[in-house]
């Protein structure tokens, strides 16, 4: 079952880009990554899903309901963490969380305590006395306190130190195990790589691809680096699938995509000093998608 279905969503703001024809689905129980550089349209898509802004054309459903018409109903089960958190400054953390909880018709006080403990958040402080990172923690607790079925995170890790990031990811994985679906937008690939099952890559307002993380990595090249005693004849690796061959003194490097046995045979026939074969990280895959389009 799809928790989120986005169909040809388009939002134009006068001259500014917005998004055009964005379509993808998020299945129940998955952690779905939404990646792209700043300004690619991640926030615009998310803000449209939350009906903070309205689409120029296209539509989206959440839990099978229209995201505009049924917004109040849908939002009972959504937890949202914006990229920059802003709250009513003259409130205490405790009061803000209580206020937030008052919108959901259930008792959240126990969950608030638990979450505050995990995130190491002082509930008695005033919000305007908090650092950026601590405000973010308020945002996290605020987004999760009603145990939402769908968690939408827009670049959630900015401002959090690595330890807190770790705790936060563990918290998300726990929520996910309990059945929550997560839409995780980010421009930091390592965190997406670590958490997500599938990703949508967005560029200049358009979806470039939607893939499983594992397929993304399978379908791409491996990086070879070979050290030899003498510089290698550049034509030696003249087989299909080899790319960006570079010979620098005794080091030969290239990218390979295709049947791995072919290359390994070639390498076995030669005298080598050292050999490195690396999986590209997501960052490189990502760049690959971007360069291809450019």
């Amino acid at each position: 079952m799809n928790v989120i279905e986005i169909n040809n969503l388009t939002k134009t703001y006068g001259k500014a880009r917005g998004i055009s024809d964005v379509s993808f689905n998020v299945e129940e129980g998955e952690i779905f990554g939404f990646i792209g550089p700043n300004g690619a349209g991640k926030s615009t898509t998310i803000r449209t899903l939350l009906s903070l802004i309205y689409p120029t054309s296209g539509s989206a459903t959440i839990f099978g309901k229209d995201c505009i018409k049924d917004a109040p109903e849908i939002k009972k089960h959504i937890g949202y963490l914006p990229s920059e958190v802003f709250y009513y400054d003259n409130m205490k953390v405790k009061d803000l969380l209580k206020y937030s909880a008052s919108f959901y018709k259930k008792d959240c006080s126990q969950r608030i305590k638990e979450l505050a403990e995990i995130m190491d958040l002082d509930l008695n402080k005033k919000i305007d006395d908090l650092s950026l990172g601590n405000k973010k923690k308020v945002g996290i607790v605020q987004g999760l306190l009603h145990s939402p079925k769908l968690i939408i995170l827009d670049e959630p890790t900015s401002g959090l130190d690595p330890l807190m990031q770790q705790k936060f990811f563990e918290l998300l994985e726990e929520e996910n195990k309990k059945g929550a679906t997560i839409l995780f937008s980010s421009h930091i690939l390592t965190e997406v790589q670590r958490l997500c099952n599938r990703v949508a890559i967005i560029k200049e307002g358009k979806i470039v691809t939607v893939e499983k993380i594992s397929t993304l990595k399978e379908n791409t090249y491996k990086k070879f680096k070979i050290e030899t005693k003498a510089p290698l004849d550049p034509n030696y690796f003249n087989i299909t699938g080899v790319n960006k061959l570079e010979v620098k003194d005794n080091i030969t490097s290239f990218l390979y995509r295709g049947n791995i046995n072919l290359v390994m045979k070639k390498i076995a026939e030669m005298e080598i000093v050292n050999l490195w074969i690396e999986e590209p990280d997501l960052e490189e895959i990502f760049m690959h998608y971007y360069e291809k389009e450019a």
Partner: peptide, 16 residues
Amino acid sequence: DKTSEFLFVKPVSRNK
């Protein structure tokens, strides 16, 4: 005050 991303994400309609 940029608190719209707090309030308008809550399960209440804009009219209310």
